[in-house]
Simulated assay, not measured.
Amino acid sequence: MPENDALLARIDRLESLDAIRQLPAKYALALDMRDSDAWVNLFPEDVKVGGGKSGRKALRDWFDETHSRQFTGTSHHIGGHVIDFDDADNAQGVVYSKNEHEAGGDWVVMQMMYFDRYERIDGRWFFRRRLPLYWYASDLNRPPIGERKMRWPGEPPYEGSFHDLFPSWKTYWDRHGMAHDGPVEAPAPLEKFIETMRRGAPLPRPRVRS
């Protein structure tokens, strides 16, 4: 690749990283301020909503109905963000999120992360998909010690899917946290950190909460 083309590709990658890192922050701000138009415009026009529906209008209808019914208010706090590029216009990422919800007479705190797919369309980056993975949700005054850490008011507690994307969690506890004799694996190839950690694990199917 000519030197000038290589420089332009590096600049494009830096600009893409910045644009992708802003997506979760914009998502959180639009969600917490209940600006459903701003929120759905972070997804492409043909976004799949579920139940055979697609498009931003269907996604906005889901947003308005869900957040008016479940929560009086929310605050989403964005944490670490790992991004790998599949090519110049497609990427994937894992981003942490700690969220607070006013849910009737309860103040529910949630720890989770998202597994994201990003796509650049006509020069602009969008979420192609967000897969939420939950560790716990519980009233502020009731720490979620023990099993079934997803404890929403008025619902039976259930297991989240926080560790299901990465098999290292189960492997670690299967050996009871003890050291093993195998060699240290080589570092993940460039742009393959998430895929290397996943080790071919299938996508989990968590309940959707935001």
Rank of each mutant, 00 (worst) to 15 (best):
Q111H: 07
L23D: 00
E185W: 06
V49E: 04
G104S: 10
D164R: 04
A30T: 05
H163R: 11
F63I: 01
Y96F: 08
G105I: 10
R117F: 02
N90R: 13
A103N: 03
N4Y: 14
Q111D: 08
E15N: 12
G73E: 14
K53D: 08
P132I: 08
M33H: 12
R151H: 08
D46L: 07
L203Q: 11
T74C: 10
M197G: 03
K98T: 13
S138G: 07
A28M: 09
E159Q: 13
G80R: 08
L133P: 00
V108G: 01
R151Q: 15
D32R: 07
S36D: 13
D84A: 04
N141D: 15
A38V: 13
E195R: 06
P187D: 08
H81P: 02
L14V: 12
R209M: 04
M197S: 06
T66E: 02
F115D: 00
S97E: 05
V40L: 07
V47N: 01
A25L: 09
A6V: 09
N141E: 13
E195T: 11
N41M: 10
S36T: 14
D61P: 02
R69V: 00
S161P: 03
W107C: 06
M1G: 13
M110D: 02
D64W: 00
E45G: 07
I121K: 15
R175Q: 13
S16A: 14
A38S: 15
F115E: 01
E195P: 03
S75L: 14
S138Q: 04
A25G: 04
K48N: 11
K57C: 06
A30W: 01
L14K: 05
R34G: 00
E45Y: 06
V47G: 02
P156T: 10
T171H: 14
S97C: 15
F43Y: 15
I83F: 02
L59D: 00
L8H: 12
R117N: 05
G182T: 14
A88V: 07
Y158A: 09
N4R: 15
H180V: 11
N90L: 07
I83Q: 00
L31K: 03
S36K: 01
V40D: 02
R142V: 12
K192V: 02
D5H: 12
G104P: 03
E15A: 11
H67G: 00
S75A: 14
F115P: 02
P167R: 04
E155A: 15
Y118G: 01
A58R: 04
P189A: 11
G80L: 11
H180E: 11
V47M: 12
R124V: 10
A28H: 05
Q92N: 12
K98Y: 09
I145V: 12
Y158K: 08
Q111T: 07
Y136W: 12
R209S: 04
K53R: 12
D61V: 03
F166W: 07
Y27H: 09
F63G: 02
L133H: 00
E102A: 10
R34D: 04
E100S: 13
M113L: 15
E45A: 15
F71N: 03
W135Y: 07
D164T: 06
S54H: 09
L165G: 02
E102T: 09
A25K: 08
M112N: 09
D139E: 14
R130I: 09
H101E: 05
N141L: 13
M33S: 14
P144N: 12
Q22S: 15
